[in-house]
Write a protein that binds this DNA or RNA. Structure first.
Lengths: 115, 115
DNA sequence: GGCATATGCAACCTCTTGGTTGCATATTAG
DNA sequence: CTAATATGCAACCAAGAGGTTGCATATGCC
């Protein structure tokens, strides 16, 4: 649908802020990077190699889970976390919209100046 | 136990977290959306239409400026803020990398999600 | 059963953040 | 010059985020 900046694309994105905020912490960004490059991992596995406690990692995982970036499945006595790509795609699409609007604004401005 | 995680994949890109965090606030996200669709605007112009004070908007603009998403030029007695698309492109590239890594591991992860 | 492992839950602390108010400064208009 | 406009600066405040410690619970292994 190639409308020219529909209102719903300009004004209605409260959910995106939460997604960006979820990746706005370096520990959570590292967790996502860790999860996107391999199999789902347990909490203790994800805690290994960091300097913070398991409970802190757990909190970060719950934040990621609340925004939908990560899903948790209980397997035996461990909770295995895996990435869900759909919110990432939503963020990509949002950034594409913003960049596209910016490019169009620049084109209009350039056309106005050169006119 | 030996970690099979390459350290470069876990400890990379510290700057991206600040970019995501800058867009993690709904007011700042709205400011970016506002700026990407037109010419640079002054602080009072950007404050108009919001329910928060000019000083709060100023703080948000300084945060965006610190991360490089926005640039400020003093014009007479007003400060005009405009978008800088380069950090946005950096975020797009980062998300592209994550998505690409995701696609490479899709087979295993698909089995996990559908289980 | 009994012990080690993996996680959950809750209280607590500190530091940051988003927001406000009040006042000072700079710049333009008359 | 004077007044109105636009911004800057600083103190202050409430709430939330990131992190810790301590203890409880669940599961696997001998």
């Amino acid at each position: 649908m190639s409308r020219s900046i529909p209102s719903h694309a300009r004004n209605k994105q409260p959910a995106h802020a939460a997604l960006f905020a979820a990746l706005g912490d370096k520990t959570r960004l590292a967790l996502v990077a860790r999860l996107c490059s391999g199999e789902p991992a347990s909490i203790t596995q994800l805690t290994a190699g960091t300097r913070i406690t398991r409970q802190a990692i757990t909190k970060h995982l719950r934040v990621l889970e609340r925004t939908g970036l990560v899903r948790c499945v209980r397997a035996g006595r461990e909770s295995r976390f895996g990435l869900d790509p759909r919110p990432l795609h939503a963020m990509q699409q949002y950034l594409d919209v913003v960049s596209h609007q910016w490019d169009q604004a620049l084109a209009r401005l350039k056309a106005f100046v050169e006119d």
